[in-house]
């Protein structure tokens, strides 16, 4: 039985989308001993253009490396939603940065989680870690890699001296995700 998951993270250049994809893939590959392929697409712009990071995770060998219709889609800009929104597999999970993305119409048969990743990062005084906050939320909500593996992968991927900041960002995102799940499960 092959357990294959396709994940797409998308936003604009400069948000750390590509690094997020790398960290997610590394978590699965090195810390959960699964097979993971990480690919990326971006335009010629250094910053501001739309970009996406695709990760395929499987217990078996991954031959075809690309993501077609992801089962988990993480969106961090309105432009990325316009480009990639329709790619999400029915029955899949959508995680949004709620302050940067508004949905005119909610897609059907999709689980939607709204996470204020950029706002949480700004409240920490470091907007730059919004991607790590979002990864923390993905650990809680995405169901693809464990909190422990993802945290190890964050620590193995960031510049020395930024451990405290990044772990704190990761934990804030994770806490938000765990609380969100509790709130959604609580009877109305």
């Amino acid at each position: 039985m092959s357990e294959k998951q396709e994940i797409r993270l998308a936003g604009f250049g400069g948000q750390g989308i590509i690094l997020s994809g790398h960290i997610l893939g590394k978590a699965a590959s090195l810390f959960e001993k699964k097979n993971a392929v990480f690919t990326q697409s971006y335009g010629p712009e250094a910053r501001g253009g739309s970009c996406s990071a695709d990760v395929v995770i499987s217990t078996q060998t991954v031959h075809y490396p690309k993501v077609g219709n992801p089962s988990l889609l993480v969106i961090m800009s309105q432009g990325a939603w316009a480009t990639y929104g329709s790619s999400l597999n029915p029955g899949g999970t959508l995680i949004l940065d709620q302050d940067l993305v508004t949905l005119e119409k909610e897609p059907e048969s999709v689980t939607i989680f709204r996470v204020p990743a950029t706002r949480i990062a700004e409240e920490m005084g470091k907007k730059i870690v919004a991607n790590i906050v979002m990864l923390g939320a993905v650990a809680a909500l995405g169901g693809v890699v464990s909190y422990e593996s993802l945290k190890k992968s964050v620590l193995a991927s960031i510049p020395p001296g930024t451990e405290e900041l990044n772990v704190s960002a990761f934990d804030k995102g994770h806490e938000f995700g765990v609380d969100l799940l509790k709130r959604l499960k609580a009877p109305a």
């Binding site: 790398h22 893939g25 590959s29 090195l30 097979n35 392929v37 990480f38 690919t39």
Partner: peptide, 9 residues
């Protein structure tokens, strides 16, 4: 390009 930019173990 696909293999050059692809990340795996």
């Amino acid at each position: 390009e696909v293999v050059g930019h692809m990340t795996e173990k």
